[in-house]
């Protein structure tokens, strides 16, 4: 009798659980309102795909020691946008962009066109570009309110003076901004990654290793949240891939960087191409 009750309770618990079984491909479920935060309860309604990761060991610098074993992915979409939630285990949050420290990050990669002959899964190839949407933990920290100064990274830092903070510029904010730009060449040149950041995600295109560049805006947006026990949970959203109708397939690949393992750029864990299917209601 006691065994029967336990079995019934287990069955009841299983049937009440809203988490669908893992699926062999990434299934993007239709939703009128897309979830944009990692802990939105709506994510429980999407099936989860657990993507096995491999080290990037095709081009130097290579990652020779595997780190992140898998990334768990769920997805929702509507007629114009698609969002993904990526989750991976990483006990050590790394979001301070200081010398010698890399930021945790993740990215999704989708072929530029839906076609049978896929681009190389390793950053695409010439004539077959891929679209990359990239999230970084230090950008997330900036969006979440961390200031844009060295004291926000090193609270005890001692700074004598910045030329653009001279009193003579007090009444001329434009002159002040102009002078500040002179000492931040990446910003002066319009390098989109040089901050200050309004979003923790950026749109990129690539036609092979070493060619990653800012791409046309695909409306990249998202947010990430870290839990010391569970690791990172990151939402990445972008425009729906062109031509991806309901019940049609394209492909997707994922990459994850663990900052504390000195992973950045080509030093990363990645997947190969994984089918991505869009489902209707």
């Amino acid at each position: 009798m006691r065994k029967t009750v336990v079995a019934l309770l287990a069955l009841l618990a299983a049937s009440c659980g809203r988490t669908p079984k893992p699926v062999p491909e990434v299934v993007s479920v239709s939703a009128a309102k897309l979830p944009l935060t990692p802990d939105d309860r709506l994510w429980d309604r999407a099936p989860e795909h657990a993507a096995k990761m491999i080290p990037q060991d095709l081009v130097e610098p290579r990652l020779l020691e595997p780190t992140t074993a898998e990334v768990r992915v769920r997805s929702f979409s509507n007629s114009s946008e698609i969002v993904f939630r990526l989750e991976w285990a990483d006990a050590d949050r790394s979001d301070r962009p200081v010398p010698g420290v890399m930021a945790d990050a993740c990215a999704i990669q989708i072929p530029g066109k839906i076609e049978k002959d896929l681009p190389d899964p390793q950053m695409g190839q010439e004539g077959k570009p891929v679209q990359v949407t990239y999230w970084r933990a230090d950008w997330q920290a900036a969006v979440d309110g961390r200031g844009d100064s060295i004291r926000d990274l090193h609270p005890n830092a001692s700074i004598d003076h910045y030329p653009f903070e001279a009193k003579v510029l007090d009444g001329d904010p434009e002159a002040r901004r102009e002078m500040e730009r002179r000492y931040a060449p990446a910003r002066a040149l319009g390098n989109l990654r040089a901050g200050p950041r309004a979003h923790p995600v950026e749109d990129l295109v690539s036609s092979g290793p070493g060619t990653l560049a800012p791409g046309p805006s695909l409306g990249a947006r998202g947010s990430g949240k870290h839990d010391a026990r569970k690791g990172w949970s990151v939402v990445i959203g972008r425009k729906l891939p062109q031509g991806l109708e309901v019940n049609q397939r394209t492909h997707i690949a994922f990459a994850v960087w663990q900052g504390t393992r000195q992973e950045a750029g080509a030093r990363k864990m990645r997947t190969g191409w994984i089918p991505l299917v869009r489902r209707g209601e």
């Binding site: 610098p61 301070r96 962009p97 200081v98 010398p99 010698g100 890399m102 230090d138 844009d148 100064s149 060295i150 990274l153 931040a184 060449p185 990446a186 910003r187 002066a188 040149l189 319009g190 390098n191 990654r193 040089a194 901050g195 990653l212 560049a213 950045a264 750029g265 080509a266």
Partner: peptide, 27 residues
């Protein structure tokens, strides 16, 4: 400065350590 993405590979590679990472611009 328009192309750098701040991977700090150059900082690692230069034996004289004369390339510096800018944490504000990320380059």
């Amino acid at each position: 400065q328009g192309r750098c993405r701040g991977y700090q590979e150059c900082v690692k590679g230069c034996p004289y350590k004369k390339v510096f990472y800018n944490p504000m611009t990320g380059t």
